[in-house]
C-alpha cells in the first residue's frame, strides 16, 4: 500500500488529474449571462418590490385590516387607519421599510382583498436613506405602474395555488 502511495506521490498523478479537470472547464461553453443586456427568465412567482393595488374603478383595495402587518416576520409594515366620511375603514399611513422587508411574501398571502402584492421588479434603488420607507403613495404608484404586468403574473401563478 505504501509503495503504491509513494508512486502516486512521485508521479504527481493527483495533480495531473486536477489539471485535466480545469483544462476541460477551460474549453467548456461559458455560462456567463451579460446581465444588463441579457436577463435570465423570471418566474411569475418571483417576489420583488412591494406594491399596493387598486380596484378597476380606482379605489384602493386595502381595508386596513392589518393582517399583513401582523404576519410580517420582519415587522416591516406600519399601518394607521381612520374612518372615512362614507363609513369605510381606510389606512392613512401605510409604510413599509424596504430594508427590513425580507421579501417573504407572507403579507401578500395574508391579505384578504389582494391589496398588497409583490411585483417582479428587483432592479430598484434609492439615493437617500429616508427613501427606504415606502409610503402609501409610493406603494400605490408602484402598483399603478406595474399593474398589468403584476396581474398577468398572478394569473399565471394562480393555477398552482
Amino acid at each position: 500500500m505504501k509503495i503504491i502511495q509513494l508512486i502516486k506521490k512521485l508521479t504527481l498523478i493527483d495533480f495531473i488529474k486536477g489539471f485535466i479537470v480545469t483544462l476541460k472547464a477551460f474549453f467548456r461553453r461559458k455560462v456567463t449571462v451579460q446581465y444588463p443586456e441579457v436577463k435570465t427568465p423570471l418566474s411569475p412567482r418571483f417576489r420583488g418590490k412591494l406594491a399596493l393595488m387598486r380596484y378597476d374603478n380606482g379605489e384602493e383595495r386595502c381595508i386596513a385590516c392589518k393582517l399583513c402587518s401582523a404576519v410580517c416576520p420582519a415587522q416591516a409594515i406600519t399601518i394607521e387607519s381612520e374612518e372615512r366620511t362614507d363609513g369605510s375603514r381606510r389606512t392613512v399611513k401605510f409604510d413599509i421599510d424596504a430594508f427590513k422587508c425580507i421579501y417573504c411574501g407572507f403579507c401578500e398571502e395574508a391579505c384578504p382583498v389582494d391589496s398588497i402584492v409583490e411585483t417582479n421588479i428587483f432592479e430598484y434603488h434609492m439615493t437617500e436613506n429616508q427613501q427606504r420607507i415606502q409610503t402609501k403613495e409610493m406603494l400605490l404608484a408602484t402598483g399603478d405602474q406595474y399593474r398589468d404586468q403584476t396581474i398577468e403574473n398572478k394569473k399565471k401563478d394562480s393555477r398552482y395555488r
Partner: peptide, 12 residues
Amino acid sequence: VIGYMHSRVGPN
C-alpha cells in the same frame, strides 16, 4: 484564463 477555467468569460 481563470475565468475560463471557472466557466465564466472573465473581464470583458
